[in-house]
Simulated assay, not measured.
Amino acid sequence: MPKTALVTGGGAGIGRTIAEALLARGHSVVAADLRFPDGVPEGARALVADVSTDAGVRAMIDDVEAREGPVDVFVGNAGLGFAMDAASPDEDWARMMDVNLMAHVRAARRLLPDLAHRGGSFVVTASAAGLLNEVGSIGYGVSKHAAVGFAEWLAFHHAADGLKVHCLCPEGVLTSMIGFAPYLRERAVTPEAVAAALMAAMDAGRFMVTTHESTLKGLAVKAADYDKFIRFMARETEKRRDEA
């Protein structure tokens, strides 16, 4: 029997490409999204779903289990990104955290421990911003840090249970979301490159999945000399202000 994979944010960009990669591996794939601007990957089932609420996440997973059976691979790829600063209202924080963090929490609440007992996979699409931060959006950087922390907790807490956890942290990808961080465009990779990196990590059993050497190099600088890292990010912030 083919494995059942559920990919949120599967209507465009990284999510759609991951869905295609899982289809190529013989999985039965459900692509869940609010909209499908790039169409449904051929062979996948489209499911309109809102992962910003607990009810929406539960309804999505209930639908898949009723039609395809238990989920074997969950890819929490739905994400939200827009400019924010410290003065942004609570409503913006709630939107960002609901999609970028709580959607993962709510999915794990619904899927575990059964997913772990079946040796299933739980993928958290975070971002390099979850390791380094984001100069253009405080909400994006903070919510992605939280997503990385949640993925880490799942990985070590369920290590003995059989759950396979992967944390996807691309640095810049050619999707519509790059619009709020256009300075990443020059070095951005394609969604296909991100999907390939995830498939390779799943094959190797690696937790951390990155797309740019600079991500882990930057993280090493951050760990070795936090003040140097802050000075660098301060320069990047001023540079973006001058470009605006």
Rank of each mutant, 00 (worst) to 15 (best):
A181Q: 14
T53A: 07
E152R: 07
L112C: 12
T175S: 14
G76S: 10
G56T: 08
V105T: 02
C167W: 00
M96R: 04
V73N: 01
A31F: 10
A151G: 05
V165H: 06
G218K: 02
D203C: 06
M97S: 06
S121I: 07
V124Y: 05
R187H: 12
M84W: 07
A44W: 09
V7N: 13
E213S: 08
G218L: 01
K228H: 10
A129W: 02
H157Q: 11
A200M: 05
Y183V: 00
K164C: 11
Y140W: 04
M84H: 13
R240Q: 12
A220H: 03
I178L: 15
G9M: 13
I61F: 01
T8L: 13
S52T: 09
G39N: 13
V135C: 01
A66Y: 08
M202R: 14
P70E: 12
T190V: 03
Y226D: 05
L47N: 09
R235P: 04
M208S: 03
T175I: 11
Y140Q: 04
A31P: 04
F229R: 01
F156N: 12
F150H: 15
A55H: 13
F229L: 03
R235T: 11
A32R: 03
P191T: 10
L101H: 07
V194P: 02
L47D: 07
G81L: 10
G136F: 02
V29W: 07
V29K: 00
V194Q: 01
A244G: 14
A46K: 11
E68D: 15
G130L: 05
L6D: 04
A66G: 13
A129P: 04
G139M: 02
R187V: 11
P170W: 01
F232S: 14
L163R: 00
P182A: 07
T125I: 10
E186C: 01
T175F: 10
V165P: 13
G11M: 06
A223V: 03
S52H: 07
F150V: 05
D62R: 14
M97N: 03
H212P: 06
L115W: 14
A108G: 15
E192M: 03
R35Q: 12
P70Y: 00
M202Y: 11
A49P: 12
A78P: 05
S88H: 10
A107F: 13
A129H: 04
E243L: 11
A83W: 01
K239C: 05
A146D: 01
T125G: 03
G179Q: 14
R106G: 08
R16W: 07
F122Q: 00
L23N: 12
A151S: 00
H27Y: 12
D62P: 08
A224G: 15
G10I: 09
